[in-house]
Write a protein that binds this DNA or RNA. Structure first.
Lengths: 217, 217
DNA sequence: GTATATATTATCGTATACGATATAGCGTAT
DNA sequence: ATACGCTATATCGTATACGATAATATATAC
């Protein structure tokens, strides 16, 4: 992640609201009153409105005139499908590029992340899945970084933000399968096998889609 | 385009600043003072700050603590390459899907847009290119709409916004070539030729890239 | 008992005032 | 002549006060 310079009090407020949204302390679709935040965070209206404006620009909150702000609604099945369709277009290609030009340092970092995920195996169920989702996102982001297209990387990170709200809802036992899929992917990457990496990524995303899909039933 | 409900005065301010950015009345990288906008638009600080916050969330302006807002910097060669790389991953696939399921009404609307572009041929140079760019964007957006993935469509529309600032910079004579490329694309779409549409779209984007690339020299 | 109208409250929307910081211009010293 | 430091101004950042609108609750009439 790129370092961010301090952008004023509104920046802190932004982070506070962002965390509330990610942790589901503010449920999707529920209202967000600025007076409530004024009392809770003990700052004035202005930085709060500015932060909410930013969140609106990013699509995490919506605004209705003379009614106020509310958290963006829950992800729908349609969005879910569209997101995975888009990932399948972008990420396998990124994996192919990554396999072509991966450095030793990047490979080591990637392996370490995968190791961390494996170690999470014994942890408590709910906590485990939350941590797993975060590390999985990190691993995918690392590959996109190696692939080199910052635009694609930022776009997916942004979509991931929306998606994360959704992911936290489920605590499916998905780790073991995903671990072996990551394994195949990393093997292809380290050996510079472009087509293998592309195929492994595509399969991993398709399977991930299937695993999460069950939650919709 | 989806209809938007009125979101208050800040919404008008947002539109005003947005237009200034698109028309290059505010140059990329130049500073935007809120007091200046207060005097010019004759509204108070609050709606202006809220609008700037939203624009920041969309990445069109950047904020520096205790310095203020400024328009996002000019697009770089690197961004340009990344954008086209991403378009090549997403749009040919969209063209393929569109060819599979296009309706008669959509096809008619598409043809009409292409006709409009052809009629622009005689207009004054600068005006022509500006209008051409807008219609070209519209045509691509229509195809993405037909393809059905709203997420991809919104993402590209968003990137296009950034890109538009850049496009207006050039007034290259690119219309004639592009017109025939659109022709091939529409023929493939109307005949339901999936692979042909995909190929035509890829070629169109690649050629568009080459045409604009000259401007970087 | 239900529906409609009115009053009250909560919240958004806007404006203004004050304090803090950075930038720029000017003067002085070397 | 140049460089350093100080002062002044412009702009951001924050807080508070007031007005407008919508949602809710209550009371009255049918």
């Amino acid at each position: 992640m790129a370092i961010q310079r301090y952008k004023g009090l509104a920046d802190d407020v932004y982070g506070a609201i962002f965390n509330k949204l990610m942790s589901l302390e503010i449920a999707p679709g529920s209202r967000i009153t600025v007076d409530g935040l004024v009392r809770e965070l003990e700052v004035s209206h202005t930085p709060i409105r500015e932060a909410l404006g930013r969140l609106e620009g990013e699509g995490l909150v919506v605004k209705t005139h003379l009614v106020g702000y509310s958290a963006a609604p829950q992800i729908t099945r349609r969005h879910f499908d569209e997101l995975y369709e888009m990932r399948l277009l972008l990420e396998p290609d990124a994996a192919r590029r990554a396999a072509r030009q991966i450095s030793e340092g990047s490979m080591r970092k990637l392996t370490e992340t995968a190791e961390q995920m494996r170690r999470l195996d014994g942890a408590r169920e709910r906590l485990r899945y939350s941590g797993f989702a975060r590390l999985d996102a990190d691993l995918h982001d690392q590959i996109l970084e190696i692939a080199g297209n910052a635009l694609v990387r930022e776009t997916l990170a942004h979509l991931h933000t929306h998606f994360h709200i959704f992911r936290l809802m489920f605590h499916a036992r998905v780790t073991e399968e995903a671990l072996s899929e990551h394994e195949s992917l990393l093997v292809a990457l380290s050996s510079g096998d472009e087509l293998g990496a592309e195929r492994a990524m595509r399969e991993h995303i398709e399977r991930s889609r299937q695993r999460l899909l069950m939650a919709f039933v």
